[in-house]
Amino acid sequence: MMKGGWFKVYAIGYLLFLYAPIIILPMFAFNDATVIAFPLTGFSTRWFSAMLEQPTLSIAVKNSLFIAVTSSILATTLGIFAARASTRYRFPVKAGIMGLIMLPLVLPEIIVAVSLLVVLLGLGVSLSLWTVILGHVLICTPFCIAILSSAFQSLDQSLEEAAYDLGESAASTFRLIILPLVMPGIISSLLISFTISLDEFIIAFFLAGTEPTLPVFIFSQFRFPQAVPVIMALGTVLVVLSILLLTIAEYFRRRGIAKAGGKDTGGFL
């Protein structure tokens, strides 16, 4: 393929640029030195063992997992309603309603964070993990809708009608036909929103009160140079974990499309 030759060189260079931080990350995670700088001094796993001994970290991990699991379930549930409505029905001011729901996709997170903060404090709600969840559900839902819409869209409407025609009720049609066919999309949506929530910093920073979440913990550690190698180790674990989750999510997304007999048209967005 001579035609794409230069493009390919460029593309590989670009991928290198994209992956540069991820490639460098494990280098420092396994580097012996306390200072994050080149040249590397020697191989060590001590930062990983140090990581396991951090008491705040385990609290932060627990908090983040709780937030991420709850947010992903809630966001996916809300996503199912909206995706189903937008792919199946015409209704008044549809564009306006869907636009509002999808707005967090482009809205800077800090705006979401401060506006929620103002309202919650105004209502006298004390900040907790639940207030973070409120914000995370808001920003995860558009991603869930994007994934679920493609799952619902590749679902031929006559499949539902056929089941109904063959004597099933609306509920049993949903259980026997729709749910199995969009299940891969639901799993993919859960995984993606879990990943987003786990990684989200600003909203948690504003709305978590005194409870640390994983990104808030990481951010606070950047101030202490001696703590940074541990963060590199933590980062390595997180990157491996999220690549794993994403691969699973992508697997389910593709299987979902294949299952419903559709054509794969692209990535997550």
Binding site: S158, A162, K259, A260
Partner: peptide, 30 residues
């Protein structure tokens, strides 16, 4: 529709893609 004495063959056939041929054919007898 699910209580009418009619059945339909759809333009797209609407064969349930996650079921086998026998499961499709036997679907209405569940």
């Amino acid at each position: 529709a699910n209580q009418r004495p009619t059945n339909m063959v759809f333009q797209s056939y609407a064969i349930f893609p996650h079921l086998t041929v026998a499961e499709n054919v036997g679907f209405g007898l569940r």
